[in-house]
């Protein structure tokens, strides 16, 4: 059964430009040329700073009538800063940027069997990952498109659903410091590696073509009986017996949490928790459990590999994994 929720933190920015594709192509991470096609589906994309760090993510929606206008569906908190940044990039281009959050609302439809139950023609699938559900802009106050038998869900339920799939968005991703590949924007179809230059491209391309991303955002489960209060963003996650942390907690919304973790120990712990001992940590030993804090008695957390992750993630340097572990 699908559930429907209106996003509470939704902000809409309208970008209007004579040559809008050319303008956005130079500053966003994804290939805007695909939005030129009539009836093009919404696109997930991001803006980075020149150091290649994350600033804002957005879903770009083509409006049906006007090909010079795109609507960017972004976190409400980011709207003023995003508008300021777009105006800074404007220079001589004939660009008009406006906050139109009062005119449209972002709706999502999601659920365990979303694809089967929901009418695929009615709402476009989420551009990041189709199992996440469907996402659509509607005029404020218009609920005519909602199916009667879809229960309306609490937006917090949608956050839990995203966290279950290991997906952060908007202001959950720290602007100015987050590394886009560590927040999995490549796997979420938010980055084009063939489009050419955009702001921050040099560092993203280098990390991507070097072929190894060592840390990524992963969903975590608390071991049964553990104290949820001990989970706090920024807390270090350690493998039992190791001094150097495996990573740190990024987002906590009990009972779920997300953490940016080094893949090698985290995936080994994830496999060990599922009873898959084939991914032995090093030297044939079972992988150590992960816990919060460096003292060894913090609550145990169990990372999980999301289903949508490409098979190659975490195995890029399998050949010298043992050497890596020794060096680490």
């Amino acid at each position: 059964m699908g559930k429907v929720a209106r996003m509470i933190g939704d902000g809409l920015v309208c970008v209007q430009c004579i040559d809008i594709i050319h303008f956005l192509q130079g500053i966003t991470t994804n290939d805007c040329a695909t939005l030129e096609r009539r009836g093009a589906r919404p696109q997930y994309s991001a803006l980075l700073n020149s150091q290649g760090r994350f600033l804002y993510d957005m879903h770009l929606h083509r409006t049906r009538e006007e090909k010079r206008v795109l609507l960017a569906d972004v976190d409400k908190q980011s709207v003023p800063d995003l508008i300021k940044l777009l105006r800074r990039y404007k220079l001589r281009a004939n660009v008009d940027v406006a906050d139109v959050s009062d005119e449209h609302a972002v709706w999502v439809r999601f659920g365990a069997d979303a694809e089967g139950v929901l009418q695929p023609d009615c709402w476009p699938p989420d551009a990041r990952y189709s199992t996440l559900g469907q996402r659509k802009l509607l005029p404020r106050g218009d609920d005519s498109c909602l199916l009667q038998d879809d229960p309306v869900a609490d937006p917090a339920a949608y956050q839990q659903w995203r966290f279950e799939h290991g997906i952060a968005e908007g202001a959950e991703i720290p602007a100015g410091s987050a590394v886009p590949l560590e927040y999995n924007l490549d796997g979420l179809r938010g980055i084009s590696f063939t489009k050419g230059c955009y702001v921050g491209q040099e560092l993203i391309a280098r990390a991507h073509f070097r072929g190894v991303v060592r840390k990524r955002l992963m969903p975590l489960a608390l071991a049964p009986g553990a104290d949820a209060a001990a989970l706090s963003p920024g807390a270090d996650v350690h493998a039992r017996g190791a001094v150097r942390p495996v990573g740190r907690m990024a987002l906590v919304a009990p009972p779920r949490a997300l953490a940016v973790l080094r893949l090698q120990p985290a995936l080994a712990a994830a496999a060990a928790a599922l009873g898959l001992q084939k991914e032995a940590y090093s030297g044939g030993e079972p992988a150590p459990e992960l816990h919060i804090g460096g003292t060894g008695d913090g609550p145990i957390v169990v990372p999980r590999r999301p289903e949508w992750w490409p098979a190659t993630w975490g195995h890029e340097d399998t050949g010298d994994a043992a050497a890596q572990a020794a060096a680490g």
Partner: peptide, 12 residues
């Protein structure tokens, strides 16, 4: 010579 938005470092 024109400066426009875009390029790896922000403006090109």
């Amino acid at each position: 010579l024109t400066v426009e938005a875009g390029g790896c470092s922000g403006f090109s």
